[in-house]
Design a protein around this nucleic acid. Structure first.
Lengths: 229, 229
DNA sequence: ACACCAAAAAATATCGTAATTAATGGCCGA
DNA sequence: TCGGCCATTAATTACGATATTTTTTGGTGT
């Protein structure tokens, strides 16, 4: 069907999987929305086979739910699940951070410093404006959190954290489209505190701080969600 | 193709997903084995479409791995991963047990007592023979562990524990086909200790015991695996 | 004769389309 | 109003076409 799909070792199923995942997390595909296969075929310009494969994989990520012979839906959102996700994520991410700090070396500290510096730089350029939905900040924020736990040796821990972050992101992104986030919070200071504790090897403090950080983010999201329901 | 598939709200993709999963966990499909699609079509008497869907879902469970245009393989086994899985499982399962105990009520204690009694009964009937691979014992063991964490409110915790148990099971089952497990261990006593601690609401003790229990099982499996590699 | 590479052939995975099967909704009669 | 029946819609699956990877083959140079 493609004449010379150069530089593409990926399958169409892969590509559409990523596209749909992005669209669910961004909220373009709305929570609980029915996913009609023929519509998606047109929308993503693709056949049934790769589409179904992609949806099957998204079901594994809990971004899509499916029922017998009745089709697929975007997974619903709920405040209960948001809290659940946050709790499990805090448990896993603080454990991963602990291990990461225990395995830390100079290289890690350099990487972390650079990630924090980059984040700070972007925040400076935004001069007071909200960070949310600014792509560069989103990316730098993601990198900072990834580097934090990067020295954790457990592949399974990382795999699960990845899924949970995906879920959190969906809640956060969707809450941002519903209302401007309340500015009574200094995310930069939270990051800075985590950064210093991590660099200093203060495991307990770093873990406590990251748990607080996750919970504060969730508090924001929950507030918006509660109002909008 | 089926005239009246009554009592079956399940799709073919569902059925073959379960079959293949069972065969991977039991070891009938061997670790790292290449899964040739046409072979599987014949073996499970099914078409490509539902087969591919099933494999996509199994990829999400990390029981199958896939690479671009090169197909599917049964996920490989390694001692490193076994240890990884055990550690994460211990972390999550002891947290879940803690929550379960905190939410415990009389009904839970009854259920747990019954599950333990049933397990004990079956062990009595086996009179010294190894429990492993005896279907009734396997089932009762599974039920006991499930009831233990059943009052944990976190759906995500349970979802992840389920995946990890699946993985552990694969390692355990496969190690049993490689060698008779060493009998220098009293699984019944371990269960009994966990049971009593849980019933008495001794959270710390119960959590410590279940961690030890998981690690002892892994020690057995690791021993067999090390020898056979 | 042997290693190395290129090109053809075979095997296999992937995908689009069409046929099959099940669920849904409306209509009619009780 | 309540079922039951049929038409419509949609999901599921089979199958055939295409693209990709792997293996084999044959040729070339050392």
């Amino acid at each position: 069907m493609n004449k010379k799909t150069e530089a593409t070792s990926k399958t169409l199923a892969d590509l559409v999987y990523q596209k749909i995942r992005t669209d669910i997390i961004s909220g373009e595909l709305k929570a609980s929305e029915k996913l009609r296969l023929s519509n998606l075929c047109k929308k993503y310009d693709i056949g049934m086979s790769p589409l179904r494969e992609a949806l099957a994989r998204l079901t594994g990520d809990a971004l899509v739910v499916t029922e017998g012979q009745r089709g697929f839906w975007v997974a619903p959102l709920s405040i209960e699940e948001l809290d659940d996700i946050t709790n499990v994520r805090a448990l896993l991410e603080s454990e991963a951070l602990q291990q990461s700090i225990q395995n830390s070396d100079e290289e890690w500290k350099d990487e972390l410093s650079m990630a924090f510096k980059e984040l700070t730089r972007i925040e400076g350029e935004l001069k007071g404006r909200s960070y949310d939905l600014v792509p560069e900040w989103e990316e730098a924020n993601k990198v900072f959190h990834e580097v934090l736990v990067s020295r954790c040796q457990s592949q399974w821990m990382k795999k699960m954290i990845k899924i949970l972050i995906q879920q959190s992101e969906r809640y956060r992104r969707i809450s941002l489209t519903l209302a401007e986030s309340k500015g009574n919070r200094n995310v930069h200071d939270e990051h800075e505190a985590i950064f210093h504790a991590a660099i200093q090897g203060n495991i307990l403090k770093a873990c406590r701080l990251i748990e607080v950080h996750l919970n504060l983010t969730t508090d924001n999201v929950r507030q918006v969600l509660e109002e909008s329901i």
